Amino acid sequence: LNFSNMESRASEIAIFRAIGATRISVFFQIMGENFFLVLIGAILGVLLVLPMSYGVQSLVLGGSLNEKMSLIASLDMSVIWCQVLPLAILFSLLSGGLPAYLITRKNIAEVLKGGNE
């Protein structure tokens, strides 16, 4: 999805490059946007996991578990900091890095005139 998004933004990126932006600055701008989206998604996922698990527990089990038991006992912050956040960064690099690199390597003139698809 990110690759097709970058392809649709190719003319925008070519215009940035034509007015003087370097490949590196365009690459880091794209990576910053992608990292921000991945980070927001990871934060929303962490914030929604407990309410959703309690909702599923009440729907599926109908409160048959006693009050001291639940599907998810608590949210361990060390797991979030040591596993979820690094995975989010890795996915951001993989899903955004390669398309951003490939799109910044394209010839500006070819992109602006429509390319040779």
Rank of each mutant, 00 (worst) to 15 (best):
L1Y: 12
N2Y: 10
S4I: 15
N5I: 12
M6F: 15
S8Q: 15
A10M: 10
A10P: 07
S11V: 06
E12T: 13
A14Q: 09
I15V: 11
I15E: 08
I15N: 08
A18N: 06
G20A: 05
A21C: 15
T22S: 12
Q29R: 07
I30M: 10
I30E: 02
G32E: 01
N34Q: 02
L37N: 08
A42E: 15
I43H: 00
L44S: 01
V46N: 09
V46C: 14
L47T: 14
P51C: 14
Y54F: 13
Y54T: 08
G55H: 03
V56W: 10
V56T: 09
S58R: 11
L59I: 06
G63H: 08
S64M: 13
N66A: 07
N66M: 05
S70P: 11
L71G: 11
A73S: 09
S74R: 13
S74I: 04
D76A: 15
S78H: 14
S78D: 09
I80N: 02
W81V: 11
W81S: 07
C82Q: 10
C82Y: 01
Q83M: 14
V84D: 05
P86D: 15
P86C: 03
L87W: 06
L87M: 13
L87C: 06
L93H: 01
L93I: 14
L94R: 03
S95D: 06
S95E: 01
G96C: 14
G97I: 05
G97F: 02
L98N: 02
Y101S: 13
I103P: 00
T104C: 15
R105A: 12
E110S: 13
G114W: 11
N116D: 11
